[in-house]
């Protein structure tokens, strides 16, 4: 916002970045080095760098990526499919609802916009353990238990309240004058929404998508109940299984953590560019 930067301020900005980066990085780097350790190097720690203060090993990677490939690859594929499709579905339906709540006023008896919004969020309050068993029974009835489709629907629904709330706020932040002029030019309401509001709220859309994606990617307890075999089981179940009778398999958790971060990070790198100014400014001024 300010063109000339104060060197002292710049210094502190970078200092803050470095400090938080190390807060983020220390656990991540520790995970990285643990992924190459034998149990004994974990127990007799702290050991930091493979080849220098301990003898590194690829066994942990080999275990998942070669020995257990059949299971690992299926679960990885399920996770990616379920996370992406459920997030797309969630964002599509969620932004429609959010747009409705942001632009129209609903009134059914005493129920108004804010009540509808609160009803959405209230669906997220019960702890998952209370609802998983009824859900399990319901999915069995519907014959979508242990299918990717079932999980996609479930995650889309679970994340909807968050998507609705977040998107509504982003839409509210966008001046409605642009849509109004589009409507006057003969656009339908849907066209105005798709062509004008959605592009303008790209940063919010991306942020919400990433958030919803991460939730679907990492969800455990619902997946535990709604899946059963490699037909639909997802990665978090594999991760949770590393907490074993023998104590946590730190090396296994580390490998799985790193491989599960990878695809989401790639998506974040691709989408990050859309979380930036310019789009809106250009549109408003143009």
């Amino acid at each position: 916002m300010l063109e000339r930067r104060n060197p002292v301020k710049t210094f502190f900005s970078y200092l803050a970045l470095v400090i938080w980066s190390s807060v983020v990085l220390v656990p991540l780097l520790w995970t990285l080095t643990t992924a190459f350790k034998n149990p004994i190097d974990v127990y007799r720690g702290p050991k930091y760098i493979p080849g220098i203060d301990f003898q590194g090993t690829f066994d942990n990677w080999k275990y998942f990526l070669i020995d257990q490939w059949q299971f690992f690859s299926a679960q990885y594929f399920n996770s990616i499919t379920v996370a992406i499709f459920s997030s797309l579905l969630c964002i599509a339906i969620g932004s429609l609802a959010a747009y409705g709540l942001a632009r129209f006023s609903y009134q059914y008896g005493k129920i108004q916009n804010k009540d509808i919004a609160f009803w959405f969020i209230s669906q997220k309050i019960l702890p998952p353990v209370v609802v998983v068993i009824p859900l399990y029974v319901m999915f069995q009835w519907l014959h979508i238990h242990d299918t990717r489709f079932g999980l996609i629907i479930a995650y889309a629904a679970f994340n909807l309240p968050f998507a609705v709330w977040l998107m509504r706020d982003y839409f509210l932040g966008i001046p409605s004058e642009l849509e109004e002029s589009a409507l006057i030019d003969g656009c339908s309401r849907i066209q105005a929404f798709v062509r004008i509001t959605l592009p303008l709220s790209a940063p919010g859309l991306v942020a919400t998508f990433l958030f919803v994606l991460v939730f679907a990617w990492n969800e455990y307890i619902v997946a535990l109940f709604l899946t059963q075999t490699l037909a639909s089981q997802t990665m978090p179940i594999l991760v949770a299984g590393q907490n074993a009778q023998r104590g946590p398999q730190w090396w296994g958790i580390s490998v799985l953590t790193l491989v599960t971060i990878a695809p989401v990070t790639v998506i974040a790198v691709i989408l990050e560019r859309y979380i930036s100014k310019g789009l809106l400014v250009g549109a408003v001024k143009g």
Binding site: P39, V42, Y43, Q245, R246, G247, P248
Partner: peptide, 11 residues
């Protein structure tokens, strides 16, 4: 927990 016990003793 037992995991910690085992790693401490076996370590």
């Amino acid at each position: 927990d037992t995991g910690d016990v085992r790693s401490a003793f076996v370590g």
